[in-house]
Simulated scan of single mutants.
Amino acid sequence: MSDTYRPTGLAELRDALVDSKGERLAVAGGGSAADWGGAPEHDAVLDTTGMSGLISYNPTDMTVAVQAGMPFATLQETLAENAQWVALDPARAATVGGLVATADAGPVRHTYGTSRDSVIGVTVVLADGTVARSGGYVIKNVAGYDLAKLFHGSLGTLGVLAEVILRLHPRPAATATLAVPCDAATAFDLGGTLVHGGLEPVALEWSDGVLLARFDGTAGGVEDRLRRARALAGADATEAAADAWDAVADLVRGTDGDTVVRLGTAPDRTASLAALVGREASAHAVDAAMASSPYAGAHTVRLRGATAAAHAAVVTALRGEYPAATICRWADGLRDELPAWGEPPPAVAVLRAVKRSFDPDDRLCPGRFAPWF
């Protein structure tokens, strides 16, 4: 059994990285993304969940600073007391630092983007114990290297997030969702009609054959936009049940025995991706479901049933078109069937150079991006 370091603050985190010199570390948070990408080879675990405190919160300035190990759900509950929120809705239970490290986001990415758009400052500790800060409480502060964006999606391989400063938004007074059964091509066209018609849906998600369009705002404004959206969408459109978005989250998370793949495309490629998933799933007798934010070009494919070899065949076909697809949940035996990542992206030389600069001894999560580096 490997040792575990569980610091409770910045100084202890720095000491843990210095004291563990020579050890390979797997950086862990809430554990909901532990299977993303490659499996890290490690001698010890650095558990960030002990760093879960609220550092400062100024509702007037609409900013909050937290330790990176704070559960994101806990932060949202705290902010709700002042009718505020961080404009992210990930499907999984994660820490704040984990959301940055995985570049995770949910359907409201359509309007608010991902964590890189919400984070305005970070404090990180590098593998040799160096403490580095970037950004601050002023949203337009861009002095120095933007470490927040560099660490966004780094999966713990460049350094350990210790503290995160985020911008906030007011919580809407009301919300409602329109549900329209349709195929992917129709979803893309109808989504465009809703967006360009001035209805301002905060989220557009095509999931398992249904387009969901969410509207936030005042009670009267939401009611009016929902009515106009139904008129544009046609007779099949209905107001969705309150748990409609929970079903999307369940699909994105998957469950034991599933394979879950995330990938990005140009927005107008949603229909062709759906067709590819359908063909390959049928060819290999795999049950496939898909959730897409079409106008963000962000997609999740869930595979269920059949064998690990069948899942591998579908993933390989997806990688043929989209090499950077991330496997976030692995069916039993799938790791024996294919590597963690597909063909390296054109910028892989830059990625390797950044890794060497920040972690020259490859101590942090080695193997997470194998075979790229």
Score class of each variant (00 low, 15 high):
residue 3 D to H: 14
residue 5 Y to M: 04
residue 8 T to W: 08
residue 9 G to Y: 02
residue 21 K to F: 13
residue 28 A to Q: 10
residue 30 G to I: 01
residue 31 G to A: 04
residue 31 G to L: 01
residue 35 D to G: 11
residue 37 G to M: 02
residue 37 G to V: 01
residue 38 G to N: 02
residue 42 H to G: 01
residue 48 T to A: 05
residue 48 T to P: 05
residue 50 G to K: 02
residue 51 M to L: 09
residue 57 Y to C: 08
residue 58 N to E: 15
residue 60 T to M: 14
residue 60 T to D: 11
residue 64 V to P: 00
residue 65 A to Q: 15
residue 69 G to F: 00
residue 69 G to R: 00
residue 70 M to A: 09
residue 72 F to D: 02
residue 89 D to Y: 05
residue 93 A to W: 12
residue 100 V to Q: 03
residue 128 D to E: 06
residue 130 T to A: 09
residue 137 Y to I: 13
residue 142 V to G: 09
residue 146 D to K: 10
residue 151 F to E: 00
residue 151 F to Q: 02
residue 152 H to C: 15
residue 152 H to G: 07
residue 153 G to N: 05
residue 153 G to D: 04
residue 157 T to I: 03
residue 157 T to C: 06
residue 171 R to V: 09
residue 181 P to N: 12
residue 182 C to M: 09
residue 184 A to F: 03
residue 185 A to Y: 07
residue 187 A to T: 05
residue 195 V to W: 12
residue 207 S to H: 08
residue 208 D to K: 15
residue 212 L to E: 01
residue 214 R to V: 06
residue 217 G to Y: 03
residue 222 V to N: 05
residue 229 A to Q: 05
residue 231 A to I: 11
residue 233 A to P: 02
residue 233 A to N: 07
residue 235 A to I: 11
residue 239 E to N: 11
residue 244 A to C: 13
residue 257 G to V: 13
residue 268 D to H: 11
residue 274 A to W: 00
residue 281 A to L: 08
residue 286 V to Q: 04
residue 301 V to S: 03
residue 304 R to A: 15
residue 314 V to W: 03
residue 330 W to Q: 00
residue 332 D to S: 14
residue 336 D to G: 14
residue 336 D to W: 10
residue 337 E to A: 13
residue 339 P to T: 07
residue 345 P to Y: 08
residue 356 R to M: 10
residue 358 F to G: 00
residue 359 D to S: 04
residue 366 P to N: 06
